[in-house]
Amino acid sequence: MKLRDGGGLFRELARNRTLYLMFVPIALYFLLFAYLPMTGIVMAFKEFNFRDGIWLSPWNGVKNFKFFFISGKALQVTANTFFYNFLFLALYTLFSVAVAIFVAEMKGRYFKKAAQSFMFLPYFISWVVVSAMVYNFFNYDTGTFNHLIAALGAKPLNLYSTPADWYFLLPFLYVWKWVGFGSVLYLAAIMGIDPEIYEAATIDGASVFQRIRSITLPSLRMTMTVLVLLGVGRIMRGEFDMFWQLIGNNGPLIDSTDIIDTLVFRSIMGSQDFAMASAAGLYQSLLCLAIILLANALVRRVDEDYALF
């Protein structure tokens, strides 16, 4: 849109008027549901009240941020968000790649089909249902797990008041829910490898382990790098659905399982504490943006074609 085009913008809009009109609905949607709230980041520097709204409430400088950081909450939720997402990403990648490689290289078509169907199933249910299942297994009085270990003579597990157990359970459930999806993703990449390379290697006497080490893994390296970096780009965005459904407002667990997203949500819906919510929200958005720009720059260095922008 250079000035010397002289009305270039309007001429362009007139020439492709139908096409631009066809884009209006989506443009309007993102204006109202994404860009308008984006201007609301000023809330973080205001003493918000409903009467004056986002843009007219009085300014209060960095008071909200002071509150967020001094309360100690900032450090705690940042550490939790980062720690859990890091574990999630590492285990999810490991299991997805392992499942994909076995499915690609194993015999037993029907066995593989069945196993894959089972694994993909958790992708289709909400965390509400997962939380019901977790309760079935681990509730103190009637849970299957506690019946089992009681039968073995061990002490029952009081999951809902033992923070340490969740360090294992949450990553486990994360992998449980997403490994089917992730393995399909990596399997698609394996299927894209030229089969002639495998045939040639087999004729040359390469064992299945050698084929995986010298063909499959190197070919997957690019996909893995990109998907992991994308995951890193989202590392400060917590799995709100999961944490809220499984743990929710559980006092004894809050210090070890409170992530940025649950803190923001509780502040809004619980105490209508918009000072905390808007400061923590903006802090998270900026952190996310910085990390994704960094991750993208890294992807660009690995392979420009895979860069996001």
Partner: peptide, 13 residues
């Protein structure tokens, strides 16, 4: 890439 966060989103809606 960037969002205003949940607080402004909630208020806008």
């Amino acid at each position: 890439l960037f969002s205003g966060g949940l607080a402004p989103y909630y208020i806008v809606i």
